[in-house]
């Protein structure tokens, strides 16, 4: 993963020089630990600020919508799945893109690191290990223990479409139950489910970072911002907060790739992925569908097939 950056820079410079693209979207070094900032390079000099490590968790597919330029984009497995979804939904044209695919070993969960260590000054991704440096301590940990929870259960770490790969595909784990959390909630009583989500959402400040970090949330006007009619109240009423999260998740059904952008963006650490994961699981159970794997098949929610399950209709 560490060696990728040279290749990323080399490809980026090449496609800019060859005028294959007008710009390349990548990451530059952030100003706080574990944060890299999405940025755009239009010249070869700009490319020199690119970085790649386990702090590139933001989903860059989010920056493609509606753009007219020819774009190079550095993309992890999940990013490419969202690019596929964008192509299917006509948000971007495949021909506009030069996808620099990055086989991904997972992103570091900055919230977990900050919760475990006080005063983290620097976190260095060393490949299999992570060095955490504070004002008066230094620790080395296995990266697998610090991954974002969606990365720990990721089954598609390799880019599903790309024009070039920056390294050999990584091994795909096979013995993973990616929906363990969902099963836990499914097993709860109705009462407990209600309470679980009440508790989950109690600190939500409705900043909409989850929505805005999500590549799927590109509606010109979100339903929470509609005023005629007004679907959802604007206050901190728990029912309004819940309605927002719940309906947003529904809008992602059959489209969500569990990239974790929403959870990563949340300033108060809410794991709203438990909503979208349920729908992801249902789509898999009902339609055998995983979002963003191919541009050749229409997603289940915009197609009808005679054998669609319909047991719920009485």
């Amino acid at each position: 993963m560490i060696g990728y950056i040279d290749k990323i820079k080399q490809i980026s410079k090449q496609i800019l020089e060859d005028c294959k693209v007008d710009m390349v979207i990548g990451f530059r070094r952030g100003t706080v630990p574990m944060m890299n900032e999405p940025c755009v390079a239009k010249t070869e000099d700009d490319v020199d600020q690119f970085v790649w490590d386990g702090h590139c968790g933001i989903n860059l597919a989010n920056y493609l919508m509606g753009r007219k330029e020819k774009i190079g984009i550095v993309a992890k497995g999940c990013d490419t799945r969202n690019i596929v979804t964008h192509i299917i939904e006509n948000k971007i044209d495949r021909d506009q893109l030069y996808i620099i695919g990055v086989p991904c070993k997972g992103m570091i969960d900055r919230r977990q690191v900050n919760n475990r260590f006080e005063g983290v000054r620097e976190v260095i991704d060393q490949g299999d290990t992570v060095k955490i440096i504070g004002a008066d301590f230094e620790e080395k940990l296995d990266k697998t223990d610090l991954l974002q929870s969606n990365c720990a259960t990721c089954t598609h770490p390799n880019p599903v479409i790309h024009d070039e790969l920056v390294g050999d595909p990584v091994e795909v784990p096979t013995d993973i139950d990616q929906w363990a959390d969902v099963r836990k909630i499914e097993a709860m009583s109705t009462e407990d489910k209600w309470g679980y989500f009440d508790d989950l959402l109690k600190e939500c400040i409705r900043c909409y970072a989850c929505r805005n970090a999500c590549p799927l949330c590109y509606c010109p006007t979100c339903f929470v911002d509609e005023s005629t009619p007004q679907w959802v109240g604007k206050s901190q009423d728990p029912i309004d907060v819940r309605t927002f999260h719940f309906l947003r998740a529904f809008h992602c059904a059959g489209r969500c790739t569990d990239c974790g952008a929403c959870e990563r963006a949340c300033p108060v650490g809410i794991n709203m992925r438990v909503f979208t994961q349920k729908l992801e699981k249902d789509c898999y159970d009902l339609y055998g569908w995983e979002a963003g794997l191919t541009t050749d098949v229409r997603p289940p929610l915009d197609t009808y097939r005679a054998d669609d399950p319909e047991e719920f209709i009485k």
Binding site: P38, C39, N62, C207, A209, S235, P267
Partner: peptide, 24 residues
């Protein structure tokens, strides 16, 4: 470029004061 236009900065900021008024 990177901004996703969420309200995190303004809602966490102690000095941001803007509000919206609505009748329910």
């Amino acid at each position: 470029f990177a901004c996703i236009n969420c309200g995190t900065c303004t809602y966490l900021c102690p000095t941001c004061w803007c509000f919206d008024i609505q009748d329910e």
